[in-house]
Design a protein around this nucleic acid. Structure first.
Length: 596
RNA sequence: GGUUCCGUAGCUCAGUUGGAUAGAGCAACAGCCUUCUAAGCUGUGGGUCCCAGGUUCGAAUCCUGGCGGAAUCACCA
């Protein structure tokens, strides 16, 4: 049982003794004691005054007396204003470290196979252009949230829903037919997704010219868009595709294949993988049936032109179109279908969608409609909404060429890592293969940490002019700290100090105690992070740990320490710090090197 | 215009269900490597927590109203 809970329970017991039965737990507020005061945990007594009917100091004294009498962990206490600062017996902390080393406290909570799995959808790319920095945020959040939830003991399934059909795909196909000269990405020496993406750009540019020309001939913008030959051809191609035209489908397969080859490479670099990949081309019809059934059951309304709508008036929202007048489905119809499909596929406990906050409204509506249609699990659908990645000039705009390409930024990070490593004279005697791996790890660590340390809900800024840092509050700083621990462990092993031994009777410095207390908090940081769907909590925590360790490292030698117990304590404290860092970074989807 | 989200140091960001004197990094300046990795450590300066009210023992945090920014409100996805 964690210590806070124990104190909480004990305080509640005290209140019952003094004031009779009641539910006091909610009034008990325990937090870390602030740096400036003596103590480890602090009870805020103000909320208790109403039941205790005492002055703050008096009440605090009473509780303090009770705690130090009834809990052997409590060594003493002091009262300042309405705050009861509780001092925990240092021996309790040191024994925690011995225990943590033996019991593998950091292992994931045991997974109960009876718990229905949490389905996390993320990535969900379109197959008409390569991934950019916004997708990177999405993918990193997806991985990290999955791992964090898994660490709390729930089974997790990662799924991807690929948008592999539609007018935008037809545009790239058409452009390639017209101007591609039958060339393949391999022949062109271009990564598949970029290759296909360039045809999308080509299409849009040519279309723009056509529209301009039509406009100069007196067409309205809308008219011009409808009449442009390229648009008409693209629509014709979509019709062919939907009718299963062999040649069209074949081209579609080929070009999507090129894109997937490209995506795979990017995914591999980012460490992204899925338990199941859905393709919209397989699922886009499933929503239609559900909507038609809903209409029959009178849950939806049909207008004179045959279009089908959901009336969300009750929720003070407008009506929402679900089927066009020609009977075809729209985006949200497909999402209704895939939600049902997914729920049935996995018997899902929760269904999380990592999708940008530009779709907040969409998911609100989706959940309401699912509820209206009678799916009692609609409550389990959760939109994990995250903010946009902005550039100094605002949003990334593909039209203005300000998109930060995912592959570019990945290779830039690796190059920077490589350059810095060389400049600092690191990895001297390390074999070439490990060296390359470490450099990659550091580049990716920098990128991942940079993105995940920001609260997901907030928009974040990326300035391409200033490259991502490798000093200070960064991934490499945390990785470096881990490498330091590893180096120390190697030296200790060579000196014959055994990590499996425990220690007794150590008089900790305040720095050592602070670090140890911080490590103790790790599991509750993870649960909080899972509850909030926020990897940023883990990221900021592990940074604090690394910083604290470096301070400890600076003036607490291990090898040169003569007291055997102190030496053993410091080594174990280091080893455990290393474990916490490694695990926390894993939860962020990042790796840590043993040397750098 | 309606709805939702955001506003904290020059810049990028923390700030756990309301708790004690609001913190980091970067940038600037000044120090520390014959001593377990200097991608490190130490120090200095830097604030109207957007503004105004309200709730209470106590507000960066909750409520109301402004101001500023973003997203969204399609028979697009």
């Amino acid at each position: 049982m964690i210590l806070e809970k124990k104190i909480e329970r004990e305080v509640a017991r005290y209140l019952e003794l003094k004031c009779g039965k009641g539910n006091y737990k909610e009034l008990v507020n325990i937090q870390k004691t602030r740096q400036e005061f003596t103590g480890d945990m602090t009870l805020v007594v103000f909320p208790l005054l109403r039941v205790l009917k005492q002055k703050p100091e008096e009440a605090a004294e009473g509780i303090g007396d009770h705690l130090s009498g009834s809990m052997e962990e409590v060594r003493s206490y002091n009262v300042i204003k309405g705050f009861l600062n509780i001092e925990i017996d240092p021996a309790w902390w040191t024994s925690y470290l011995n225990r943590a080393m033996k019991e593998d406290i950091l292992a994931d909570k045991r997974r109960d196979s009876k718990i229905p799995p949490v389905i996390v959808e993320f990535s969900s790319p379109n197959t008409n252009k390569p991934l950019h920095l916004g997708h990177i945020r999405n993918n990193l959040l997806g991985i990290s949230i999955s791992r964090i939830i898994e660490a709390t003991g729930k089974p997790v399934r990662k799924v991807n829903l690929v948008n592999d059909r539609g007018i935008h795909i037809c545009k790239t196909m058409l452009a390639w037919q017209k101007w591609g000269k039958n060339i393949t990405p391999v022949e062109a020496g271009v990564k598949g997704d970029h290759f296909v993406g360039s045809f999308y750009v080509m299409f849009e540019q040519s279309l723009k010219k056509e529209i301009k020309k039509l406009e100069s001939e007196g067409c309205s913008e809308e008219e011009a868009f409808q009449k442009a030959p390229l648009m008409q051809e693209a629509r014709e191609m979509l019709r062919k595709w939907e009718n299963g035209d062999e040649e069209t489908v074949k081209l579609w397969r080929t070009m999507n294949g090129w894109v997937y080859d490209g995506f795979d490479e990017t995914y591999r670099a980012l460490g992204v993988s899925f338990n199941k990949v859905y393709y919209e081309s397989d699922t886009y019809m499933t929503g239609k049936k559900i909507v038609e059934e809903g209409l029959e059951r009178g849950l939806l309304i049909q207008k004179e032109d045959n279009s089908v709508w959901a009336d969300l008036g009750e929720h003070s929202l407008d009506e929402k179109l679900l089927l066009r007048s020609d009977g075809t489905s729209v985006y949200i119809t497909q999402d209704i279908g895939t939600a049902v499909l997914r729920h049935d596929d996995f018997n899902a406990g929760e269904m999380l969608y990592v999708v940008g906050n530009e779709q907040d409204y969409h998911f609100r509506v989706l959940q309401i409609i699912l509820k209206e249609l009678g799916y009692e699990w609609a409550e389990k659908v959760k939109h994990i909404s995250y903010g946009m990645v902005e550039l100094p000039g605002g949003r990334m705009k593909s039209r203005e060429g300000t998109v930060v390409d995912a592959d570019d930024i990945i290779s830039e990070m690796e190059e920077t890592a490589h350059r810095l490593s060389a400049e600092l004279g690191k990895l001297g005697g390390v074999p070439e293969e490990e060296r390359r791996e470490v450099v990659k790890m550091i580049g990716m660590g920098a990128l991942k940490y940079f993105i995940l340390k920001v609260d997901p809900r907030k928009n974040m800024l990326f300035n391409p002019e200033e490259s991502i840092d490798f000093n200070g509050n960064t991934g490499p700083f945390i990785q470096y700290t881990h490498a330091r621990v590893c180096s120390l462990r190697r030296k200790c092993r060579d000196a014959g100090i055994n990590e499996d031994d425990s220690f007794t009777g150590v008089d900790m410095s305040s720095k050592e105690l602070k670090l140890l207390k911080m490590l103790y908090e790790f599991p509750s940081v993870v649960s909080q992070s899972a509850a909030d769907y926020s990897p940023a909590l883990v990221a900021n925590y592990v940074y604090e740990v690394a910083k604290e360790y470096n301070q400890f490292y600076h003036d607490h030698p291990v090898l040169r320490e003569s007291d055997r117990d102190v030496q053993q304590f410091r080594l174990l404290l280091s080893v455990y710090t290393g474990k916490v860092i490694k695990k926390a970074m894993y939860l962020l989807g990042a790796e840590v090197p043993e040397r750098m």
